[in-house]
């Protein structure tokens, strides 16, 4: 499928929070999207932690952020990541970053995963 995949409407993600998606029907959320007003940031749901590469990061469905919703956290070993850059700020994978996915929000507020990375 080499075309954008609709994930949800903006209003389906609480402002400031995150939500996981399984657009390729893999049986688990392969990516998550953070919403900040009309901006969305998408990452592959895969911690870069050495030896655990690819580990799912939430501790419960859609729980990808810390309590203050100021950082992405990995519930496997406690790594913390900058929401905007995806860079590891604290924890077991310093110098590494989350894998950003290209998203698009159209005028109607529909959120799409763009195809460049849709096979990741």
């Amino acid at each position: 499928m080499n075309r954008p995949i609709r994930l949800c409407h903006l209003s389906d993600i609480e402002d400031g929070d995150a939500r996981g998606f399984d657009p390729h029907q893999q049986g688990h959320d392969s990516l998550f999207v953070i919403r900040q007003h009309r901006q969305v940031i998408g990452y592959r749901n895969a911690c870069p932690h050495k030896g655990y590469e690819g580990t799912s990061m939430a501790w419960r469905k859609d729980r990808f952020l810390n309590k203050a919703h100021s950082r992405v956290i990995c519930a496997a070993h406690g790594a913390q990541f900058d929401i905007n850059s995806g860079e590891c700020l604290l924890g077991p994978c310093p110098g590494q970053s989350l894998d950003r996915l290209p998203l698009l929000v159209n005028e109607q507020g529909d959120v799409y995963l763009l195809p460049a990375d849709s096979e990741k």
């Binding site: 501790w59 729980r63 519930a75 070993h77 406690g78």
Partner: peptide, 9 residues
């Protein structure tokens, strides 16, 4: 094993 909000399995 499960993930946890303590940041450990």
């Amino acid at each position: 094993y499960f993930n946890s909000p303590m940041g450990v399995h």
